[in-house]
Design a protein around this nucleic acid. Sequence first.
DNA 1: GTGAAAGCGCTAACAT
DNA 2: ATGTTAGCGCTTTCAC
Lengths: 357, 357
Amino acid sequence: MTTKPDDLLPNAQTSPERRQRRKGSGITLRDVAKLAGVAPITASRALNTPDAVSPAVLERVREAVARTGYVPNMLAGGLASRKSRLVAAVVPTISGPVFLEMVQALTEALAEEGYQLMLGQGGYADSREDALLEAIIGRRPDGVVLTGIMRSEEGRRRLLASGIPIVETWDLTPTPLDMLVGFSHEKIGAAVAGFLHQRGRRRASTISGSDERAVRRNQAFSDAAVALGMALPGDKAVPTVMVPAPTTLGGGRAGLAQLLEEHPGIDAVFCSSDLLALGVIIEAQARGIRIPEDLAVIGLGDMEFSRDLHPALTTVRIDGTAIGRRAAKFIIDRVEERPIGERVCDIGFSIIERAST
Amino acid sequence: MTTKPDDLLPNAQTSPERRQRRKGSGITLRDVAKLAGVAPITASRALNTPDAVSPAVLERVREAVARTGYVPNMLAGGLASRKSRLVAAVVPTISGPVFLEMVQALTEALAEEGYQLMLGQGGYADSREDALLEAIIGRRPDGVVLTGIMRSEEGRRRLLASGIPIVETWDLTPTPLDMLVGFSHEKIGAAVAGFLHQRGRRRASTISGSDERAVRRNQAFSDAAVALGMALPGDKAVPTVMVPAPTTLGGGRAGLAQLLEEHPGIDAVFCSSDLLALGVIIEAQARGIRIPEDLAVIGLGDMEFSRDLHPALTTVRIDGTAIGRRAAKFIIDRVEERPIGERVCDIGFSIIERAST
DNA sequence: GTGAAAGCGCTAACAT
DNA sequence: ATGTTAGCGCTTTCAC
């Protein structure tokens, strides 16, 4: 079924004195067309716009494709049509399970429409970021999904200049490059402070990763908490421990230990990831601190495991799936030249209350 | 810096009566060459094989690139050279954090050599698998990394027929398609049984995901355990609970609950992932069962968090990073036509003993 | 509805 | 060391 009879070798009729290039052994559209008795362009139409050819031709081309095992060369197609059906995603690191849900949704939503995802890791030095950018632009993707990365102004400018549709995610910047689907870290910080206050907590604290968004989230949390009287009188901020990114369970344990040593009076911890929160729970258990009686714990991310912890973890849920889907839709709409509507999409967040608070 | 002066518009000299195609606004190699005062092929050489051109030319081309902001079109380059510098990876699902480490290493190792990773999810119905295959082969990647997926015989045949280098991973099949880097699930099962026996356990049990490799691992575990007298006299197998893949913390809790109900005498559980093991630990704590005194727990995967659990988790470590790196090297060596040597690489595994056993 | 011609932007092959 | 020519495999444009 996948063998290639002599009679459809490409350029079989070419004059033999012509200098020969290493001919690919692959089956091309020409071969399929020849077998179906039509011109290559007709075979192309049969595959891409079946409605534009007669049923008889369609049938013959389909059969020829099946017989030869032909798979269109998307490099050639992309070059000619200027549509690569490729979308690049840049994440700081795949290991942060936070982005996993989004990447998964993105992959799926794109695949459904015949697009593929190219993955790039961006959490690197500027030199590597430059290389990443070249790799991305060089493939002429139909879109790029950025995850709060692409720090250098220069990099952002080059991307923008390339004319590729861009979707920024996981944040709500005042000046998006192009399209944006995210949420407000400031609002989360303030909302969590309000939530803890309402549950009767009066000595808030935080453990957080050191990335820029976490810092802004924490700042908002601290400000709101101070305003609500959840800091020691006179203090301008709430006790905070920063752990190096990416956040880990171990970081959570160490963070709580440090927090307790310096501020034994705390009755609530806002962790910037569920993994940190799990570490806090484990450290608390190891120390005989009761949750939620002695200490309320709230995480961020609503990991799959959080609901099954003991006690079940209260957390801020961000719908990564929705972000991924929306980003995919933004890009595909743009490629297909459908109207986009609002270029900025606030996906919001919700606080899932469970036993840990 | 990125604007395009009139004097280097492509084909500016072409006769005006020629039918015009929608000209791209992008800068091409021709533009760079013209600006540097050389032929396109020379500019191409300056970029790809700098040693093959004179220093003077190299300098001028480099400057022209900088001035124009030129980024080579890899679609065109790939089409002409039959090298896409793209590698496709197929994973059952990215969410299983088990493969994350490998994907991460793969992405990095490939990026270092100027290759990019295209991600595909394979845990689907056969119809979607077919589409995935088309998408992969259609991009003419320089290699494909398979993660125990590509179930259909037909799919494997098509991939093989495409002539693309293939690396299978996470297993040691007797008949690899092409290249292979993995480890023996049977050996793991047997080794874990031996390990638990040596630690004095006599009533082994397992909780595992339902995928085929877990089943084989469990079978080997059970066989070895029975041989060592770790099953009830007369029993041909050890108590087992299967949870649907992907494995979750919740699955571990439910699994232990079920196990205890049906077989209250067990003193050891082999979990097919660290997440399951964490669930077991939590469920045990909730029930007042002491680990490791009453029950030994061993996981698989050595997640980043496992060492920080309380008690710290004994687990089977598989070096995902090594797998990813080795797979990348296999493919790149093949592309660069370097000798490969042995096509099969057993990466092995190790049992990391911690407090939970 | 179908086809011929002309590229898309690049590099392999053959000169010089 | 550099240039000329001819594609890579597909789709766009224009013509019938």
